[in-house]
Design a protein around this nucleic acid. Structure first.
Lengths: 153, 153
DNA sequence: GCGAACTGGTTCCCTTTGCAACCAATTGGC
DNA sequence: GCCAATTGGTTGCAAAGGGAACCAGTTCGC
C-alpha cells in the first residue's frame, strides 16, 4: 500500500471541502424546506436580527459575502416583506435595511432551530473539543488569508 | 453586548463555510495559475495518479464529486492529453481511464506543490493539533451524513 | 465651489454546478 | 432467450455565484 500522502482522502483541504459541503447542504435543505430561504438570505437576516439596521456595505462585512450576493438577498427579502429600507440621512446612495415585524417573527422562529441543528451536528464533540475545533479552524483560516495576501504581489 | 449565540460569526457551519472557501480559493488559484487545472480536474488526476486506472464510476466514489463533474473533468483531461481511455473488457459501457506519460509527469510535478501548500496552511498547528483537527472534521462529517439520512424519510 | 477620484449599489454576463432526462449496455426473472 | 429493471455515461437545462462595467452620490485637492 502506498505510504505516501498523495491519497486525496488524506489531503486536508479536500476533507474540509467535502465535510463543509455536506454540512452546508444539510442546512440549506432545512432552511429551504421550512422557510423558503437560501443561505445568503438567511445570513442577512441573521445579521440584521442580531445587530439591527445595516447598510448593504455593512452586511458585506458582516456576512463575508460578495456585494452582489448581499444585494440579491436583500432584494428577495424586501419583496417578501421581511426587511424594509429607510433612507440613509448620512449618505444618499445607501439605505438602512432592517427586519420588519414579520422579519423579526421569522428570525425568532428560525434562530432556535439553527442552534438546535448546530447542536446536533456537534453532538459527538465534548465542549473542549468544540472550542478546540473552532480555534483550529480560525487559525487555518488566518493562514489562508495570509497566504492569499502574500500571493497577490 | 448580546450574550446570545445568534451572532453569525460564532455559528460553526458559517465558520466552516467561510474558512473552507478561503482555503479552496487559495488552492484553486494556484492550480489554475500554474497548471491550468480546475479543482475537479486536479482531483481526478490525484486519484488516477495514486490508484492507477479507474472507471468514471470509481472516480465518482474516489473524489466524492457528481458524476457530471467527473465526466467533464475527464473530457478536459483527455483533450489535453493528460489521461487516456481504454475499453473496459468487462463492461462495454465504460472505459478505463489512466494517466498518460504527460499526465504522470504533471502529477509528479504538482503533488509536492500540493503537499507544500497543505504544509503552509497547517504550519501554525503542531502535529497533535493536525491529527485532532482531521479527526474532529471527520466526526462532524459523519454527523452531517447521519442527519441527512434521517431527514430524507 | 469645481473637477477628479472614490464609493455604495445595481445590472449584465459568463462560468461553474447540479439535477433530470436520456441512451446504451448489462443483469435478472421467468 | 426475452422483457423489465438497473447501471455507466452523456447531454441539456436551469440555478447559483463572481467579476467587470456602470450609475449616482460623496469626498478630496486645490
Amino acid at each position: 500500500m502506498s505510504a505516501n500522502l498523495s491519497r486525496l482522502a488524506e489531503f486536508v483541504p479536500y476533507q474540509m471541502s467535502v465535510t463543509t459541503n455536506a454540512v452546508s447542504d444539510l442546512i440549506a435543505g432545512e432552511y429551504r424546506a421550512r422557510y423558503g430561504l437560501k443561505i445568503p438570505e438567511w445570513r442577512v437576516m441573521a445579521v440584521l436580527g442580531d445587530a439591527g439596521a445595516k447598510t448593504q456595505r455593512e452586511l458585506v462585512q458582516g456576512t463575508r459575502m460578495d456585494k452582489v450576493a448581499v444585494n440579491r438577498a436583500c432584494k428577495v427579502l424586501e419583496e417578501r416583506g421581511l426587511v424594509g429600507r429607510s433612507p440613509n440621512a448620512c449618505d444618499g446612495r445607501s439605505h438602512h435595511l432592517e427586519l420588519t415585524r414579520a422579519g423579526h417573527k421569522m428570525h425568532a422562529e428560525i434562530m432556535p432551530h439553527a442552534l438546535e441543528m448546530e447542536r446536533r451536528l456537534l453532538a459527538s464533540l465534548d465542549p473542549a473539543e468544540r472550542r478546540q475545533f473552532a480555534q483550529l479552524l480560525a487559525r487555518i483560516g488566518a493562514s489562508a488569508v495570509e497566504l492569499e495576501k502574500g500571493k497577490t504581489k
